[in-house]
Design a protein around this nucleic acid. Structure first.
Lengths: 349, 349
DNA sequence: ATGAAAGCGCTAACAG
DNA sequence: CTGTTAGCGCTTTCAT
């Protein structure tokens, strides 16, 4: 591997000049630049990452911590981050924690040890030790949390306004004549769950509907739990004419339950999910849902980080983006699916 | 950030001794070791990654290049690699290329520049420049390709034996009385597609069935193309009693087409996919398919790499693992789905 | 069993 | 516009 010295000698200049050329610092005569350029390309020189890092402790790397590679939310988020990062000369470093708090902390520490320049942190939970650590490093390095886990903590975050979007979805259901709206929520200890649930209650208030806790069932995010929750709603005998859920996967469980029990969707019960995963277009009937602007969330996170690095301003920023209601067949019988839906295609493996 | 010198001074020893302690080199008195241990923990010292890398040019990092975060194959593969790697003190570095050859090459170069210790490379294609580069670096650093892209190249690979598994699936279909087996294949330029397709032909030969090219339709891996292919098979008027596909997503497209045209599955046409993505258990009827031993593939890849590093033996190894036929409702009407199927649960986002 | 000192490849004062 | 020099934090001879 050639070093900067090889290039310098070979081009008949000093290391400094080569370094300056590489980093676009200070003025270099066009002629010298050209000689250096040629030499670099002839020697296939590429700067040693460690030596560079050691001097600058910059790595042009943004770390991304996620709980779970398999959650379809993340690929798109990562892509949003990566696209923006790449445009600005950064690469990303990804780490999955399998939703394990110990592993979350370990991932963060490892990233810091590797001197990444900023962190995007995603988690299902809100482990105190994680947050403490994030707050600690956030003074030195830009950190963005993809959840309002930490409303009260001095951290930057980027989120979808789940509460507002859910509230709007309630008014949509009322506008199509639904009056008894059930809700399948996630585990109460999750902040985002409660945020969306608050939106449901806001919506009822805004529409002058009574809040009836018998119409609310708690599930655990799995398809199966959504199925069971839907059955519970049926068994309760409540005159429900629509069901909203905190996540699409639970909504799809509910659809499977209603299909199985021959409850007509949407004629008897309309279903509205949250997230807009690709399954929404595959399931029958296709699922009305609230789409998160995932790629935009990623872009915003990357922008916050890169802005902060460039400006050396560690001020915290909070961004909340609007969710978008996407009406499909599970709430509108006249909706015509693009059929078969295009859900992308993966290469063979 | 404390340095090794801080630790040394604070513990009343030299840098050398601390370094030796850290790397388990040479003999150190129990007493000294204890003092160093205490100091390190008190100072929260952690070795500087760059300085270490500069000296050793080892990073304890395995790079993974994949074409696409969204393909459900990869999360599981990555997990297989990571689990093995972590157990052996390695971390992984992931990079997605969006199936773009230029980006593949760039990712590889960037990883090499960062001195990762080994690479697992996944691609949908087989760009010559990528392969040339891989072959070039494979003499210095262990490389494993997750596809027999490169049968003839001097590279290690780990794959599922698609041909053998497909052949077996044909004999399974024959065993349940099917005689006219259609096949939906992927784009011909993809090696793995053809590999599976050869298995289909092998199977016909083994079962004494004629190969009829009118029963074979080429699609492009998308659900939609599978749908169209299934319709083409129906329109052809051929007396098909079963359809195999090169991938699950195309099989699911076919199921949607058959459902839509009220062709009874599996009574009139049985469907068999390949991959075993989670959708197989969500679609109705649930999809019989050939499962790849994904996590085992990942583990095998990581093992090859870490073995090679430890033994400094750059010999190439090829591993081919068996696929497993998983019978569900799309071929067996008596199969009882675990219902609702457990497809895992993702935390909210 | 421990230390002193050299040097990995790079960047950034400082000097001309 | 260009060069000299010091030093980032670590591991590794070579001494002791």
């Amino acid at each position: 591997m050639p070093t900067i010295l090889d290039v310098a000698v070979s081009a008949g200049v000093s290391k400094t000049t080569v370094s300056r050329y590489l980093n676009g610092q200070g003025p270099i005569s066009e002629e010298t630049a050209e000689r250096i350029r040629a030499t670099i390309s002839r020697l296939q020189y590429s700067p040693n990452h460690f030596a560079q890092g050691m001097r600058t402790s910059r790595t042009k790397t943004i770390g991304i911590v996620i709980p779970d590679y398999a959650n379809p939310f993340y690929p798109e988020l990562i892509k949003g981050i990566e696209d923006y990062a790449r445009k600005h000369g950064y690469v990303t470093q990804l780490s999955s924690t399998h939703a394990d708090p110990a592993s979350e902390l370990e991932s963060l520490r490892e990233m810091v040890r590797r001197h990444i320049d900023g962190i995007v942190f995603c988690s299902y939970g809100r482990a105190k030790r994680d947050i403490d650590y994030l707050v600690e490093i956030a003074d030195r390095m830009p950190v963005v949390v993809m959840d309002p886990l930490v409303r009260k903590e001095p951290l930057s975050y980027v989120v979808t306004a789940g509460r507002a979007a859910t509230k709007e979805a309630v008014s949509y259901l009322v506008s199509i004549g639904r009056k008894r709206i059930g809700y399948i929520k996630g585990p109460s200890k999750r902040f985002a769950t409660n945020d969306r649930f608050e939106g449901y209650k806001d919506g009822l208030v805004a529409q002058g509907l009574p809040y009836d806790k018998d119409l609310v069932v708690e599930a655990d995010f799995s398809l199966r739990s959504g199925y069971a929750a839907a059955e519970a709603i049926l068994r309760s005998g409540m005159p429900v004419d629509s069901v909203m859920t905190a996540t699409d996967l639970m909504a799809i469980g509910a659809i499977k339950a209603f299909n199985h029990h021959r409850v007509a969707i949407p004629q008897r019960i309309a279903v509205v999910g949250f997230d807009d995963i690709s399954l929404c277009r595959i399931i029958e009937p296709s699922l009305t849902t609230i789409a998160q602007p995932i790629a935009a969330l990623g872009t915003a996170a990357a922008r916050i980080i890169i802005d902060a690095i460039d400006s050396e301003n560690m001020e915290k920023r909070q961004i909340s983006m609007k969710g978008e209601l996407i009406v499909r067949k599970s709430s509108n019988p006249d909706y015509r699916d693009e059929f078969p839906s295009d859900t992308g295609s993966f290469g063979i493996h």
